[in-house]
């Protein structure tokens, strides 16, 4: 291990952080790359969905996500699995993510595509992603019962939870019936 402290921090027991602030790191992964991560070697075809106002309202009601969902960001594999790109906006951060849903309606995976990191430590050690993997939309919808969102979870975690939830509502309303 090698640690070289910043000059302003060296040799003082309690330091004030007086060095200049820097911009936040942001990760960025393209749609194509994310598709390959979630469905390696598989071909995905665009499968845009047009949502009715009633469907949008239901997604809003059941997830409390207000930003409009962009129906053109839906893809399908030959096996009938789904790949959806969405974004949620928290108080301090934006998270763009992809959700992969297996043909049987269970969640295959979640990958963050863009993330402006502003919070991190506040979230407890919750079982988080595993709460989703393998769940169907029925299970996912009962947020308070099934998804043990940590007490005092971050805005970012909460918003992502809500985002996944609204996509599962959309799956239920629109994608599930399509062959």
């Amino acid at each position: 291990m090698q640690w070289k402290p910043a000059a302003t921090l060296a040799l003082v027991p309690v330091a004030a952080l007086i060095a200049p602030a820097v911009a936040h790191a942001k990760i960025y992964v393209s749609v194509e790359e994310t598709q390959q991560r979630l469905f390696p070697g598989e071909k995905l075809t665009p499968n845009p969905v047009a949502l009715t106002e009633a469907q949008r309202e239901k997604m809003r009601d059941l997830s409390s996500v207000r930003e409009p969902f962009r129906g053109e960001r839906v893809w399908k594999t030959a096996k009938g699995d789904w790949f959806i790109v969405d974004e949620v906006v928290g108080k301090h951060e934006m998270v763009k993510y992809a959700l992969a849903i297996n043909a049987d309606g269970t969640i295959k995976g979640i990958e963050i595509m863009e993330y402006v990191e502003s919070y991190g430590y506040e979230v407890g050690e919750a079982s988080w992603r595993n709460q989703f993997v393998g769940k169907t939309s029925d299970a996912t919808l009962k947020l308070n019962k099934d998804i043990k969102n940590i007490s005092g979870a971050t805005l970012s975690c909460k918003h992502l939870t809500d985002g996944v939830k609204r996509l599962m509502v959309m799956y239920d309303l629109v994608l599930k019936g399509t062959k």
Binding site: M1, Q2, K4, A6, L17, A19, P20
Partner: peptide
């Protein structure tokens, strides 16, 4: 970089680390 405890959206340079945590 470390977050400023007064404003966690602000981060500050703390030092250089190799092979450590």
């Amino acid at each position: 970089y470390l977050r400023d405890p007064a404003d966690p959206t602000q981060v500050r340079f703390a030092g250089q680390l190799a092979d450590g945590a």
